[in-house]
Simulated scan of single mutants.
Amino acid sequence: MLSKVKIIFNLQLILNIIFFIYLVLSKNYIKINYIVFSIALLILIVSLFNPKIKIFKLSSNFLEIATLPFIFRYLASNFIQYLSLLNMISLPLIGCFSCLISFFINFPLVMVNYRKIDNWFLRLISVQALMISYELLAFPLIGNSIIDALLRYRIIDIISFFIIAILILKKWKINFRWNFTIVHMTITQALTVLLLLIFSIWLIGFNQFGNMGSNLSEAFFYWKDIIQSSLNINTTAFLKAITPSFMEEIERFFNISILLLATYKMKYKRWTATLGSAFIFSVGHWPNLLNHISLNDLSTQIITTFSMGCLFAVIYLCTGKLWLIIAIHFLNDLIGFSITSTSPYSLRLGILTSYYNGMLTSVLIFVLPLLASVLILSFKETRQLINNNIQKAIN
């Protein structure tokens, strides 16, 4: 089975190289294609000759996991765009072909390369490279409403990433659990976790509505009028919220699991898994620079998402329920995508904007979840609960 996949993998590399050569001959290329071509050709040579020297194998493996997710999607999306310009194939057929390529393109890479990775640092890099390749390289739309919806809202990518995640975790001998069963939880632990979940839901509201309140009550708690006036939950907002909540939490599960396995003999492994996964989650937002976000806004986003990442990691470590943090993340994004930019509430400057040039909300969104995470990780009852969950998860 593996030999057949390796043949497909090499064939995929060859097709990428051939398409690049065609782009050069037709003078339809850009400078980045030289880099893509050179890397793809180098990887093909290494893949065919399979060097036995350890440093060469490690270097080639690193090169493959760090670049091939981007190369495969980059040239595949260019190929789809080229087909649409030919006007020889119907657009719906091109769209269906685009969905198929988007779905299958990374499977040979995962089966051939990812299965061999046993270093925890390389595993983190490989997951991040795969995730960012989905973020950066979208397939072109072709004008069909259904097919375009599958591509624009990355429904195909969600399904593909989920199946790939299962395959990778199986190869790495990591158990994938949607709903980790907690055998025993004391009343104190249960109440603490319940308060943590209530706090998380409140934080979502404060994150989205805090800057709209005209008084402190409206900024921190009384959001009824703001919600009625400012929210427009529709299909578009729903579809936009699905992808980041699903894929980013699957990635978080990867990162937490990898870090726990790497530090399972350490006393403070819960801190390493929480802070490490949150750091990866926050810096993973750098592609937003390509969406014309300012460097200052990106810095604020990275800082606040680090804090939220800690909170999400702690919720998972306490409950073991991946579906729960997906749901909380989805709720936050759904509200964010549903706020109308023309409502009187979203247009006005709330009371919190008068403090520290409007930075008070961002400061609180950073401090509050980070403080809650530190308390939960330090509190004796929940610390014991988390350590028990970690032990069961690793076993």
Score class of each variant (00 low, 15 high):
residue 148 D to T: 01
residue 128 Q to Y: 15
residue 77 S to A: 13
residue 168 I to L: 10
residue 143 G to I: 06
residue 109 L to F: 14
residue 83 L to H: 02
residue 133 S to Q: 03
residue 82 Y to E: 08
residue 186 T to K: 09
residue 118 D to T: 10
residue 179 N to M: 09
residue 182 I to E: 03
residue 100 L to D: 04
residue 119 N to V: 02
residue 148 D to N: 01
residue 171 K to Q: 13
residue 186 T to V: 01
residue 158 I to H: 00
residue 81 Q to N: 13
residue 88 M to Y: 12
residue 182 I to C: 04
residue 164 I to G: 11
residue 152 R to H: 08
residue 159 I to Q: 05
residue 85 L to F: 13
residue 89 I to L: 13
residue 130 L to P: 00
residue 191 L to V: 09
residue 158 I to N: 03
residue 111 M to F: 15
residue 134 Y to F: 15
residue 103 F to E: 03
residue 161 F to N: 06
residue 132 I to A: 03
residue 158 I to D: 02
residue 99 C to Y: 02
residue 121 F to L: 13
residue 176 F to S: 07
residue 145 S to G: 05
residue 175 N to I: 10
residue 173 K to N: 14
residue 90 S to D: 14
residue 185 M to P: 01
residue 144 N to E: 15
residue 146 I to W: 04
residue 150 L to K: 00
residue 130 L to D: 03
residue 91 L to D: 12
residue 162 F to S: 12
residue 166 I to L: 13
residue 190 A to W: 13
residue 111 M to S: 14
residue 103 F to P: 05
residue 78 N to M: 10
residue 168 I to V: 15
residue 149 A to C: 11
residue 155 I to P: 02
residue 172 W to Q: 09
residue 79 F to Q: 02
residue 164 I to D: 08
residue 106 N to S: 13
residue 124 L to S: 06
residue 102 S to W: 06
residue 97 F to P: 00
residue 148 D to R: 01
residue 80 I to C: 04
residue 132 I to Y: 10
residue 128 Q to H: 07
residue 100 L to E: 06
residue 115 R to F: 08
residue 78 N to T: 06
residue 151 L to V: 07
residue 84 S to N: 07
residue 133 S to L: 06
residue 155 I to T: 08
residue 137 L to G: 05
residue 171 K to M: 11
residue 81 Q to S: 15
residue 160 S to L: 05
residue 187 I to E: 11
residue 183 V to W: 00
residue 77 S to K: 10
residue 167 L to D: 08
residue 170 K to A: 06
residue 177 R to Q: 15
residue 132 I to F: 04
residue 173 K to A: 12
residue 86 L to F: 03
residue 142 I to E: 00
residue 73 R to S: 09
residue 87 N to R: 13
residue 135 E to W: 10
residue 180 F to K: 14
residue 93 L to S: 12
residue 86 L to V: 05
residue 142 I to R: 00
residue 89 I to N: 11
residue 82 Y to L: 10
residue 166 I to R: 06
residue 187 I to L: 11
residue 113 N to R: 15
residue 88 M to V: 15
residue 154 R to N: 14
residue 76 A to P: 01
residue 153 Y to E: 14
residue 119 N to D: 12
residue 161 F to Y: 13
residue 179 N to Y: 09
residue 152 R to L: 15
residue 191 L to Q: 02
